[in-house]
Amino acid sequence: MRALVANEALFPPEVEVEYVLVDDASADGTAAALHRFRRQYPDRVRVVELAGNVGSYNAIVAGMAHATGDCNVIITADMQDPPELMVTMYAYWRQGFQLVIGNRQDRQEGLLTTWFSRLFHSLMRRFALRNIPPGGFDYVLFDRQVREQVVQLQERNSNVFYLMTWLGYAYVNIPYSRRRREIGTSRWTLSKKVKLFLDSFLSFSFFPIRAISATGISLGVVAMLYGLYLVALRLSGTQQPAGWTMLMVVVLFVSAFQMMALGIIGEYVWRGLDAARNRPLYIVKDVSEPVKSSQ
């Protein structure tokens, strides 16, 4: 937090800064820490407490809904992203860009984490959103108009950062090196990463459905050709090949494909059901507004 406050001195003097801090129903004392920070800077800190844990991306939307600035920045609390980059982002916003992306060109993290991250974003660029920068991003500055449109969409099981690029605004991409985490351990577990990949990919791509259709057609063509081959053998009087093992392999393969296809279709159906129920993305338990000092 101190790094963010110190970073304010780098902005032009006419810039007013507010902090919107969201507690996603944490059980580790985060809410108390946020309120201590608010007591230190009561004139520009807003604390939003959610009633239940809804996930980081829904919590980000909650923060966006309570922000009031002309432009906004999303930065993770672990401070692996350099706060001083905001000044450059702000300068681009003053030039008229409504979306400015801090793009992780490099990261001071483990090789496995780096490799999986690059694979994830390369798949997204190839099969879902071709206009996203390589390497991924979750450090962005965006205009009030972008904020209002994202909040209005209320999209479930999605990726709020990719949603901003999906809107179609021209953006500036600023590459930077992400720092190694110095304090605490990440709670971004493997299961959360898998869910993020599924949510992101299925929200912006129909490639899995097309892949199922293409594979089904290919299997159908192979089955038809093999059937014609067996008919030709029968008509010519040639002994048909005995193939119990081959038959079992084909049955198991097709069954496995059917189950996989049903699973992919089920993911799409579940997301459609979740959207149709129209439940709120989050429930706000309490909001502590900034207290402006009287002149």
Rank of each mutant, 00 (worst) to 15 (best):
G220Y: 10
S205I: 07
G184P: 07
A62C: 06
F137M: 01
P83C: 03
Q95L: 14
G55T: 12
D138Q: 09
A128Y: 09
R277I: 13
I212V: 11
R279G: 10
D28M: 06
D106H: 14
P12F: 01
D106Q: 14
Q108D: 14
C71K: 01
F116S: 05
Q295S: 12
V20E: 03
Q80M: 13
L153V: 07
V194N: 06
V222N: 05
S294H: 10
V48E: 11
W244C: 01
V284R: 01
A65Q: 11
N58F: 07
F161C: 00
S117Y: 09
V249C: 08
Y169D: 11
T114L: 13
M260G: 02
A275V: 06
G63E: 08
Q149I: 06
L247K: 00
R2K: 15
S177C: 13
D24K: 09
F11R: 05
R46Y: 04
V222R: 03
R104Y: 11
V22N: 04
S200M: 11
N173F: 03
Q80V: 14
V5M: 07
G243Y: 04
Q149G: 02
F197M: 10
I174T: 09
G69C: 05
R178E: 15
N7A: 13
Q145F: 01
M248W: 15
R178C: 12
R94F: 03
G52F: 10
P42T: 08
I174K: 07
V231W: 08
G55H: 03
H66M: 03
P133D: 04
L228V: 09
D138C: 08
